[in-house]
């Protein structure tokens, strides 16, 4: 295995040359799936999968079905994650993470 790796990196670009290799890789149509990088895939506030829009957005989303970027995920310092919409309503009442009761502060937002 190690040998072949060496081999490949040396002449990775063999596209248009007459190659002495058995195969030339021309094209790769890859398929990948993205999901939020979360530990728990359900939002603890609305009990909907974080990949789906939160309940409130689902109910209102009649108008935008193309870009559902607006119902994103937010991670707290405690590493717990929720729908941003759900969390922003939650912190108005109680500025703590609903799962661990730590003071809530945003670590990062999904985009």
């Amino acid at each position: 295995m190690a040998d072949s790796e060496q081999d490949n990196t040396d002449r990775g670009d063999g596209d248009n040359l007459k190659s002495d290799k058995l195969f030339t890789l021309k094209k790769w149509n890859a398929v990948a799936m993205w999901s939020w990088d979360v530990e728990c895939d359900t939002c603890a506030i609305c009990r909907v999968q974080v990949m789906d829009a939160c309940l409130r957005c689902q109910a209102e989303s009649k108008k935008d079905f193309y870009g559902r970027q607006d119902c994103v995920v937010v991670w707290g310092e405690c590493n717990h994650s929720f729908h941003y919409c759900c969390m922003s309503l939650w912190v108005k009442q109680n500025n703590r993470c609903p799962l661990c009761q730590q003071e809530w502060s945003i670590q990062r937002m999904g985009k």
């Binding site: 890789l25 149509n29 990948a32 937002m109």
Partner: peptide, 22 residues
């Protein structure tokens, strides 16, 4: 481009085009 996302490659759906030189 994005943050907070992870990618999983679905290899069973990927396709490649190979040229047979032999």
């Amino acid at each position: 481009q994005f943050s907070g996302r992870k990618l999983t490659w679905l290899h069973h759906l990927c396709q490649g085009e190979l040229k047979f030189n032999y």
